[in-house]
């Protein structure tokens, strides 16, 4: 094929043809050369300014002397300096003191809400109100105690965790391990419910009371009010960790329950944990009418 002029654009073809396809020999538009120039000059400038090309075992450092590793170390150091004073105050002052310092409290609430969201919300919910198997942290019902020191300790060591000092929450599997028969467990279900006020026939109560005092009271107390040292919940209120339905209670007694909460000592600093405790107390106060 010969080179011909394309009538539409006025450019010549290259004279090649492939199954009907031809090409024009249009020259590369000036704009393209210009952009090539601009991008290359830009790249050149960047190479001069920043670390860029390997040379043997080292590399060109760039005239700005920037390096991401040094930069990040610097930024971390600056952040640590900025927070050092506030961290010191949180460490050294008591909770009531902190709670009366408005500016420090703002800092605590701002910071702790993100810490809570990133570490605790997966289990306890974004509003800390809990869910099945995970206790609410903003009510007055505590498994292990709601004092500052008690919560601090719960956070430090966790529950059934791998921490050497962990708290142990062991609700034994009475049915599965053969301590109680299915009939006993079925008797205990209405009895447990009656502790929080529901009516049951007198003979069921008598049998249940007997079973309860022999098997359960060591942890839940003779009156079912629970014992903080064992993490055994109060059974006389209508707050249920694992559900208050007949089936839920049956399985609690039959299979046992061992809630698991990680220890935070190695993951969150003392200051962070203290802020969390204050944060939870504030949330709980907000909940109270």
């Amino acid at each position: 094929m010969k080179e011909v002029r394309d009538p539409l654009t006025g450019h010549m073809t290259t004279g090649h043809e492939w199954n009907g396809i031809t090409e024009l020999n249009t020259r590369v538009p000036r704009a393209i050369w210009l952009f090539i120039l601009v991008t290359h000059v830009w790249a050149l400038i960047i190479w001069i300014l920043l670390p860029a090309w390997p040379v043997g075992t080292t590399y060109t450092k760039g005239v700005l002397g920037l390096d991401q590793r040094q930069q990040v170390n610097k930024e971390i150091a600056a952040a640590e300096r900025a927070f050092a004073e506030r961290d010191r105050q949180i460490r050294e002052r008591s909770v009531p003191e902190i709670m009366t310092d408005v500016s420090l409290m703002n800092y605590v609430m701002d910071t702790a809400s993100a810490i809570f969201g990133d570490n605790c919300a997966v289990c306890h919910g974004t509003a800390a109100s809990g869910g099945p198997g995970y206790p609410s942290l903003i009510d007055t019902d505590w498994l292990w105690g709601g004092d500052t020191d008690q919560i601090m300790e719960t956070l430090r060591v966790g529950i059934n965790s791998q921490h050497p000092d962990t708290r142990h929450a062991q609700m034994p599997a009475f049915g599965r391990l053969g301590v109680l028969s299915g009939r006993d467990v079925r008797l205990l279900v209405p009895y447990v419910k009656s502790l929080s006020g529901s009516d049951i026939p007198a003979e069921v109560r008598a049998a249940g009371e007997d079973l309860f005092s022999r098997n359960c009271s060591s942890c839940h107390g003779a009156d079912g009010m629970g014992r903080l040292q064992a993490g055994a919940p109060n059974l006389t209120d209508d707050v249920w960790l694992y559900g208050g339905g007949d089936n839920d209670i049956f399985y609690t007694i039959w299979d046992g329950r061992q809630g698991w909460m990680p220890a935070w000592q190695a993951r969150l600093s003392d200051e962070d944990r203290k802020m969390l405790v204050i944060y939870l107390q504030e949330l709980a106060d907000g909940e109270r009418p």
């Binding site: 590369v28 538009p29 393209i32 952009f35 090539i36 991008t39 290359h40 830009w42 790249a43 960047i46 190479w47 920043l50 670390p51 860029a52 090309w53 390997p54 590399y59 060109t60 760039g62 920037l66 390096d67 991401q68 590793r69």
Partner: peptide, 25 residues
């Protein structure tokens, strides 16, 4: 990844734009 490798990746990505747009154009 060392900073200098990142600089190279960034600058060549920008230079790459022109031939890419040349194809599209």
């Amino acid at each position: 990844l060392p900073h200098w490798v990142q600089t190279l990746g960034m600058t060549f990505s920008i230079m790459l734009l022109v031939p890419s747009w040349a194809s599209a154009g």
